[in-house]
Design a protein around this nucleic acid. Structure first.
Length: 598
RNA sequence: GGGGCUGUAGCUCAAUUGGUUUAGAGUACCGGACUGUCGAUCCGGUGGUUGCGGGUUCGAAUCCCGUCAGCCUCGCCA
C-alpha cells in the first residue's frame, strides 16, 4: 500500500483552475491520471479531477531521480497527488484543447495515492463502450466529464427548484417510503413486514395521499424532491424508481399551480440555457387530440391532423366510406416534400401503422398542378381539388390518410407525424416548445374491465360546471387536471383535488370502488376530508426527464447515477438477488415456484 | 408476453458473405528506446470456448433451431 503524508492531500487548486495568472505559484493538485507520455527523460501526465485537466511535468533535474523513476511507473487511472510550481508552456507549446493549456505544473513532489488495475474502458472522450459496461463499472463511467456534467446539472436543477419554492413559501416535508399499497395504478413494490405476519408495506408510487393529508394538516404549501416506485416494464424514459418534484398547495386554483410551475421551469431553463416562453400556450385535451392526435403534442413541427371525412365520403373508396359509415373518421397529414419517398418507404408506413391497430396507411402524392398520383390517387381523383384546398398541400408533398375509429386514427397519425418529423429532419434540435394541456376527461371507459377508469387519479376534482353529468354522462365530464408538456414529452401533471367527502364518494362510486373498499384502502384520506380539508391542488414533475431534457440526453439513465437495465437489474450491485433462507423464515415467507425464476 | 436490432482479445472494431487465417487491427497491458509531449512516437511481446447449447456441412465467427444478455418498442406505466 502506498504511504503519504496528510499534507499531500491538501490541494491548493483543482485541475481545471490554473491559468497564466498563476505562474510561479506553488500548488498542490490531486486526481486521476488520464494519460501519460514518457519521453525517457521527461514525463508528462494529464491529471484529471471533476473540474478539468492539468498537465504535470516530471523532470529528474527538478524532482530528482527517485521521483522520476516513480513517475515513469504511473499508469492510466492511478490516483496521484503532486506538488510543484506553475510555469508557462511557451507559445508553441500551448494546448488549446485544455482550459489550463497555457500552463503546466513542474512537479517537485509526487505521491502515488493509489494504483489502479488496467481499466475495462477508458473514461475519456476518445473511447466509448457499451452501456452495459458503463453501468457495471459506473464508478469509471462517472469520471467522464459528460457524466459529471449531467449529475452536476441535475444537482443545480434541484437547487433552483428548491430556491424558487422556498421563495414562494413552500416547505419541504418527507413522507414515508414504507407505506400502504394502493389499489389502482401501477404495480406496487411490496416489502414484507417482519412484525406483522402476512402483511406488507408498499413503496409509494407517489406521495399523493400524504401531500393531501398535509394540506388538511394546514401545511399550506408543500414540496418534496422524492423517489417514487412503480413495478412496471422499463423504457428509455422510465425506471422502476424515479424522482419527482412533488408540489401541493392549499386555497389554490389551476392558475395558481400553473403560475408556480411556470416560475420553476423558467428558472430551470435559465440555468440550463434553454428557452422558456413568457406565456406558455394552453390547449384543451380535445383540441390536442383533434389537431395532433396526442394529449402531449410535440409542437416543434407542423403536420397537423386534418379531418377530410366530409370530402372523401363522396368517393368510391370503400376503405374510407366504410370507416365513415361505421362511425369513424378519415384524417390526413401533409408531409412536406414527402413525394420523394419511395414505394418501399410508403409501403413500410402501412406495415408500421398496423402495429398501432390500424388497418393500414393510405397515401398519395401531390404532383405539379395539384393532380394526385400513385397510391390511392385514382380513387381520390374526383375530390382532388377539395383535398388540396382543405389540406393546403403543394406539389411534392405526400398525403397520409388514416381511416378507422376516431381514437385509432388519432393515435396512428399522431405517432406518424412524430416519426416522420424525426426521420425527415424536421425538428430544430435547439427548439423547446412548452404547452399546458387542460380540460382532460375525468374518466375513460375501460373496454376490457367494462368500467370507468380515472384518467389522472381518483382524487382529481371534476369541473364544477360538469358535476351534474357525473352520473348521467360520466364520459363527458372534464376534470381540473393539467399537464405540462415539452417537445412531446409529458414533464409534469397535476390537478385540483377533491376536498369534499361527498364528491369523493361520488367519484369512487363512478369508478366502481365500493364504500367498503374505499374505507379499507383510504379511510385515512376520507376521514381527513371530513375534518376540515381546505381546497387544494398540486403537481408533480419527472425530475429525471427534466434533467434529461435540459442536458439533451437520450435516456434518463444518463442523468441517474446508478440506473437499472431493462430487466430491472442493477449491473453494478447485481440486485435483485436471492436472499438467505433465514431472512425468508424470519419474514414467514417461502418461495413457491423455484424453477420459475431460473 | 409480442416485435425489432446487437453480441468476435480488457475495450473499439475487421474477417472479401461457407473455404490457406494458426480469427486480424487499433487501443489498453508487459518489455525496450527516446528530455517537450499533449489521444506522444518507434521496436518487440502477452492476450480468443467468436455470448452459451444443439444442428446442417468435407469445412461454421458466417447458415438453421434453441437459449442468455443488452438496447429500442408494443402491451403495461391511475
Amino acid at each position: 500500500m502506498e504511504t503519504f503524508s496528510d499534507e499531500a492531500l491538501k490541494r491548493t487548486h483543482h485541475c481545471g483552475q490554473l491559468r497564466s495568472s498563476d505562474i510561479d505559484a506553488e500548488v498542490r493538485l490531486a486526481g486521476w491520471v488520464r494519460s501519460y507520455r514518457d519521453h525517457g527523460g521527461v514525463v508528462f501526465i494529464d491529471l484529471r479531477d471533476r473540474e478539468g485537466i492539468t498537465q504535470v511535468v516530471f523532470d529528474p533535474d527538478v524532482g530528482g531521480e527517485e521521483m522520476h523513476t516513480l513517475a515513469r511507473a504511473i499508469r492510466n487511472e492511478w490516483v496521484i497527488a503532486v506538488k510543484g510550481k506553475v510555469r508557462p508552456r511557451g507559445e508553441d507549446r500551448v494546448n488549446p484543447k485544455l482550459d489550463t493549456g497555457e500552463i503546466e505544473v513542474i512537479c517537485d513532489e509526487l505521491n502515488v495515492l493509489n494504483r489502479a488495475q488496467p481499466v475495462p474502458f477508458e473514461p475519456d472522450e476518445y473511447h466509448s463502450t457499451s452501456e452495459e459496461n458503463r453501468l457495471k463499472y459506473r464508478y469509471i463511467d462517472l469520471r467522464r466529464t459528460e457524466m459529471t456534467r449531467a449529475l452536476r446539472l441535475r444537482h443545480q436543477i434541484c437547487r433552483v427548484m428548491r430556491a424558487a419554492l422556498d421563495e414562494d413559501g413552500f416547505v419541504e416535508v418527507e413522507t414515508p417510503f414504507l407505506t400502504k399499497s394502493t389499489p389502482e395504478g401501477a404495480r406496487d413494490f411490496l416489502v414484507p413486514s417482519r412484525m406483522q405476519d402476512a402483511a406488507f408495506y408498499a413503496l409509494p408510487q407517489s406521495p399523493q395521499l400524504f401531500k393531501q393529508v398535509l394540506m388538511v394538516g394546514g401545511l399550506d404549501r408543500y414540496y418534496q424532491i422524492v423517489r417514487c416506485f412503480r413495478d412496471e416494464d422499463l423504457r428509455a424514459d422510465r425506471q422502476p424508481e424515479f424522482t419527482q418534484l412533488d408540489i401541493e398547495m392549499s386555497f389554490a386554483t389551476e392558475a395558481d399551480v400553473m403560475d408556480v410551475t411556470n416560475r420553476i421551469m423558467r428558472s430551470v431553463c435559465e440555468l440550463s440555457g434553454k428557452s422558456f416562453p413568457d406565456e406558455v400556450p394552453v390547449m384543451s385535451f380535445a383540441e390536442a387530440v383533434r389537431r395532433f392526435g396526442s394529449d402531449r403534442p410535440d409542437l416543434r413541427f407542423g403536420m397537423e391532423l386534418i379531418d377530410v371525412s366530409d370530402i372523401v365520403k363522396e368517393t368510391d373508396f370503400g376503405v374510407f366510406t366504410g370507416a365513415i359509415d361505421a362511425g369513424g373518421v378519415v384524417k390526413c397529414i401533409v408531409v412536406p416534400g414527402g413525394a420523394e419517398m419511395t414505394r418501399k418507404e410508403t409501403d413500410g408506413l402501412a406495415e408500421w401503422a398496423r402495429g398501432f391497430g390500424a388497418g393500414g396507411m393510405a397515401v398519395t402524392k401531390v404532383a405539379e398542378g395539384g393532380a394526385l398520383e400513385t397510391g390511392i390517387a385514382k380513387f381520390m381523383a374526383p375530390v382532388a381539388a377539395g383535398l388540396i384546398e382543405r389540406t393546403g398541400a403543394r406539389a411534392g408533398d405526400l398525403l397520409c390518410f388514416g381511416s378507422d375509429k376516431t381514437t385509432i386514427v388519432n393515435r396512428v397519425l399522431g405517432e406518424l407525424r412524430c416519426k416522420l418529423a424525426r426521420e425527415r429532419g424536421m425538428i430544430d434540435p435547439g427548439a423547446m416548445e412548452w404547452l399546458w394541456v387542460v380540460d382532460f376527461p375525468l374518466v375513460e371507459w375501460n373496454e376490457d374491465e367494462n368500467r370507468w377508469d380515472s384518467l389522472h387519479h381518483p382524487f382529481t376534482a371534476p369541473k364544477v360546471e360538469d358535476m351534474d353529468k357525473l352520473d348521467s354522462d360520466p364520459g363527458s365530464v372534464r376534470s381540473r387536471a393539467y399537464d405540462i408538456v415539452c417537445n412531446g414529452l409529458e414533464m409534469g401533471g397535476g390537478s385540483i383535488r377533491i376536498h369534499n367527502l361527498d364528491v369523493q364518494e361520488q367519484v369512487f362510486r363512478l369508478l366502481g370502488i365500493s364504500h367498503e373498499e374505499a374505507r379499507a384502502k383510504f379511510s385515512f384520506l376520507l376521514d381527513a376530508l371530513s375534518y376540515g380539508a381546505p381546497p387544494h391542488g398540486g403537481i408533480a414533475f419527472g425530475l429525471d426527464r427534466t434533467a434529461m431534457m435540459m442536458i439533451g440526453a437520450g435516456s434518463i439513465r444518463d442523468v441517474i447515477a446508478f440506473p437499472k437495465t431493462q430487466r430491472g437489474v442493477c449491473p453494478l450491485t447485481g440486485a435483485p438477488s436471492d436472499v438467505d433462507h433465514m431472512q425468508l423464515t424470519e419474514l414467514n415467507l417461502r418461495i413457491m415456484d423455484e424453477p420459475h425464476n431460473q
